[in-house]
Structures are given as structure tokens and as C-alpha cells.
């Protein structure tokens, strides 16, 4: 029983990271119909901003983390939207997909070339050690990840649901033409979602890098799994994508423990196929209408 609880809690901790990244996928898709296939690399990069701050500039960790966030907002939010998405999106989704795959490769190779190909140790958020939860042993790092990511998700949900700005962003996502008719500055709302995505991936980066170390290819699996999580949960629902993230984290952990760690990605792909076949809009997604 304690083993199951341990797998569940550790799975939720990993799932919280996936949830942050999957929520970013859903946000971008909802507001701009853009799919960012560089999302995994977007998670990989901010850790190197932080490392550059601490190691090259000698900044304290939290100052470097703030600097990393600012750089991410600028490069992965503003610049990404203006330089890649805005010019390409009117040409259709496919050019965006190809361009974001290219961006992912560029980011990965740039980090390998200009920083290091080796995995870099990253400062932990908590001191080492474990705690006992009803017989399940959980690392303090996992607890911190779960708490910080959970709070971030809660804060984001409150922002989107309880503030005027958040509701205007939701309105832009749900019906951009009507949002424009009501005078909502839709272009600015879309920019805010790109900035929010940049903040989410930065947080995910800072949470995950102490465990997996900062490495140029960290984004490959992470991006794929978060993409699966967003589809499983519901690509057109931020809440669905978040739930998908947690679900995928738990399934991944149980699959690795009870089936085989060699086939963990395969198990997630099976889950993806099952969801696409049985409920294509995702477990918590909304069926979309199209008029022809």
C-alpha cells in the first residue's frame, strides 16, 4: 500500500511539471492556434539562463532565477511570438509546426555549442532528505515540486478565472472575433498568453533541473510527454491539460514500476492512442464545432 502511495505521490510531483508545460501548450493553442513543438526546449533553456547567471555573473541563485525569468519572457515569450508566430501563423499551422521544430533544434544545438554538452548540476530548491507520508517515502525535492507547481497552477487558475484580465484572456481564447467586437484588445491578450507560457516553462525548468540536471537534450522527452498530456487532458482546455499532466505523471510512474521502465514512453503513447480513439477531444476537453 505504501509502495502504491509512494508511486502516486512521486507521479503527481513529476505530473505537476508536465501540467505546467501542458498548460502552456493549451494556452498557446487556445489563443493563437499555434502548436509549439519547441516547448520541451523552452523548458530546457531557462535552466541555462540561471546557470549563466550564477556561474558567469556570480549572481545569487534567486537573482539569477529572476534574470532567467526575464530573459525567458523576452526571448521565449515576446520575441518568439513576434518573430516566429506572428509572421507564420497567417500561412497556416504547418509552417508554424515546422518553424517551431527548427527553433527547438536551434535552441538545443546552441546550448550544446555555447554552454556544454555535459549535464550540469543545478541548485536544489530544498536540502536533501526524505519525509514519510503514511509510510511512503517522498524526497523533499518532490514535495517542493508538488507544492510550488501546485501553487503556481492554482494562482494561474485564479488569475484566469477571477480577474478581469484573466477573463479577457479566456474570452479571447474562446471566441476571438466576439472578443474583438467587445473591444477586448485581443492582440495584447494573445501576447500575454505567450508571456504566461514563458513564465510556466521557466518555473518548470527551475523545478525539474535539480532532479534531471540541466542538459541540452532535456526537452526532447519532456516536450513529447507534455504534448501527450495536453492531448490526453484536452488540448483546448487549460484545466484539461493540467489534469492530463498529473494523469500522465502518475501513469508514467506506475507503468515504469509495474510494466517496464524501458517501455514507459510506449505506455504513454498507448494511453494517447486510446484517448484519441475513444475521446478525441481529450478526457476533459471540449468538442469543437466547425462550420463548412
Amino acid at each position: 500500500m505504501s509502495n502504491v502511495l509512494q508511486l502516486l505521490l512521486a507521479g503527481l510531483a513529476t505530473g505537476a511539471i508536465y501540467a505546467l508545460v501542458a498548460a502552456g501548450f493549451a494556452l498557446l493553442w487556445q489563443t493563437s492556434r499555434a502548436i509549439n513543438f519547441a516547448q520541451g526546449e523552452f523548458v530546457m533553456l531557462p535552466a541555462f539562463f540561471v546557470l549563466a547567471g550564477t556561474e558567469w555573473l556570480g549572481l545569487p541563485f534567486w537573482v539569477a532565477a529572476l534574470l532567467g525569468l526575464l530573459l525567458a519572457l523576452l526571448l521565449l515569450g515576446l520575441l518568439f511570438k513576434r518573430v516566429i508566430i506572428d509572421p507564420l501563423l497567417p500561412q497556416g499551422v504547418l509552417p508554424v509546426v515546422i518553424a517551431t521544430i527548427a527553433v527547438g533544434i536551434l535552441l538545443k544545438e546552441s546550448v550544446k555549442e555555447f554552454y556544454s554538452a555535459e549535464a550540469q548540476p543545478f541548485p536544489a530548491l530544498t536540502p536533501g532528505g526524505n519525509i514519510d507520508v503514511l509510510g511512503a517515502v517522498l524526497s523533499l525535492q518532490d514535495v517542493a515540486v508538488l507544492a510550488v507547481a501546485g501553487l503556481a497552477i492554482l494562482a494561474m487558475q485564479l488569475f484566469l478565472g477571477r480577474t478581469r484580465l484573466g477573463r479577457m484572456m479566456q474570452a479571447t481564447a474562446q471566441n476571438p472575433e466576439v472578443a474583438e467586437i467587445l473591444g477586448i484588445p485581443t492582440r495584447r491578450m494573445v501576447l500575454y498568453t505567450f508571456l504566461l507560457n514563458a513564465a510556466l516553462v521557466t518555473l518548470a525548468s527551475i523545478l525539474i533541473s535539480p532532479v534531471y540536471l540541466a542538459k541540452f537534450d532535456n526537452g526532447e522527452t519532456l516536450g513529447l510527454v507534455a504534448f501527450i498530456a495536453a492531448i490526453v487532458g484536452g488540448f483546448n482546455q487549460v484545466r484539461g491539460a493540467i489534469a492530463g499532466g498529473f494523469l500522465v505523471g502518475v501513469v508514467d510512474n506506475f507503468g515504469a514500476a509495474y510494466v517496464s521502465s524501458d517501455y514507459r514512453t510506449g505506455i504513454l503513447l498507448l494511453l494517447l492512442i486510446a484517448v484519441i480513439l475513444l475521446r478525441p477531444e481529450g478526457l476533459w476537453g471540449r468538442a469543437e464545432e466547425r462550420t463548412v
Partner: peptide, 26 residues
Amino acid sequence: VYVPQGRNLFPELTVRHNLELGAAAF
């Protein structure tokens, strides 16, 4: 103000929040 044809609401927002957005521009 303009009310287009068809469905023009934000389906996942509440009735009150949809109403409030009538003044979103200001």
C-alpha cells in the same frame, strides 16, 4: 455596439462574466 448573427458568447464563462465583458473595452 454590434450583435452579430449566430452564437456569440464565451461558453465556458458564466452568464455574469459574459455580461461584464460587454464593458471590457473600458
